[in-house]
Nucleic acid binder design. Structure first.
Length: 300
DNA sequence: CGCCAGGCCTTAC
DNA sequence: GTAAGGCATGGC
């Protein structure tokens, strides 16, 4: 494998790999120490994935990010980890607000990711009514059962399965992997993509609300899951997925943003979170609320 | 035991 | 167009 270092100075605002890769945005990475979501720092463990056939490993080092890959994977890492986003500028653009300030302080170095579209779509179909570690388990089960093998230096890695592969998996097999009622959604959506009926990446380039509408044609994809794919795969940084955590935050901190349907509430909170980078704010607030014992009284 | 988790689909009006 | 009801699984 090739190796190298991405200097810390070339990553504006820095990066915290654990926060970025274990915060429920992406389920396509694994930690070589097997301690994902255990609130144990990664130490010298690697984060690993397979992207477009290339094995990618990355971890922190004193100079920045140390990487290994079947190739020079700096371009892939730059894309997947959004290393060109200027966190300082994004933070400066966020509205001054007690909750947001606290979230940014808590999750310093958290970056949005840019996952490939189809794996992200399937991941968030699986995410319905599930906790973050369980979603990772389901996505890992799909990868282990149906992903293509890539062997490097005597070690075998697996990529996330293609639409064509998932399309021919019987629903019963997916239920065996504990996908529950999401099994037919995954199967039918994979079939839609394999049959060229629609492709999640084709949502990109459209105006935000049209792109969200486009994604909801896939089975198991409502407005919330669509927002996740727009934010974590397709680069719509204004998208604010309204999950139970963010809805609670709206009730507690931004009651004026509560409207009578998803679209209206979403528009209101996007405005509240500063518009263009509202999804960044959302991701910080989500991580803060999910991993701390937030006490609203202490904030306001 | 009940409640909840990065919700969505089907059915009935 | 909107309001119920159903739906798998596992942790607490």
């Amino acid at each position: 494998m090739e190796t190298g270092v991405i200097p810390a100075e070339s990553i504006p605002g820095g990066i915290d790999l654990q926060r970025t890769l274990e915060s429920g945005q992406t389920y396509l990475w694994h930690r070589s120490d097997g301690q994902m979501y255990a609130s144990v720092p990664p130490g010298d463990a690697w984060y690993e994935t397979v992207y477009e056939g290339a094995v990618i490993r990355v971890r922190h080092c004193e100079a920045g990010l140390e990487w290994q890959g079947t190739d020079d994977v700096v371009p892939q890492l730059t894309r997947l980890l959004r290393l060109e986003d200027d966190l300082t500028a994004i933070f400066d653009a966020a509205p001054a607000d007690p909750l947001i300030d606290r979230a940014y302080e808590h999750a310093n170095g958290l970056r949005l990711v840019r996952d490939p579209a189809f794996p992200s779509l399937i991941s968030f179909i699986c995410s319905a009514q599930m906790r973050v570690p369980r979603i990772h388990q389901m996505v890992t089960a799909l990868r282990d059962a149906f992903g293509a093998e890539v062997t490097v230096d005597g070690r075998t890695y697996r990529s996330f399965p293609t639409p064509e592969r998932l399309a021919v998996v019987p629903e019963g097999r997916l239920r065996e992997l504990k996908l529950g009622y999401r099994a037919p959604y995954v199967q039918r959506t994979a079939t839609m993509v394999a049959d060229d009926e629609a492709h999640p990446a084709d949502a990109a380039g459209r105006p935000y609300t049209e792109a969200r509408e486009y994604l909801t044609q896939f089975v198991g994809v409502g407005e919330k899951v669509a927002d996740c794919v727009l934010l974590f795969a397709l680069g719509y940084l204004e998208a604010v997925p309204l999950d139970t955590w963010i809805r609670t935050a709206i009730e507690t901190h931004y009651p004026d943003c509560e409207q009578d349907d998803y679209a209206a509430t979403s528009a209101a909170i996007r405005e509240q979170f500063g518009g263009e980078y509202a999804g960044y704010v959302q991701t910080y607030v989500f991580d803060y609320l999910r991993t701390t014992d937030d006490n609203p009284a202490a904030i306001d």
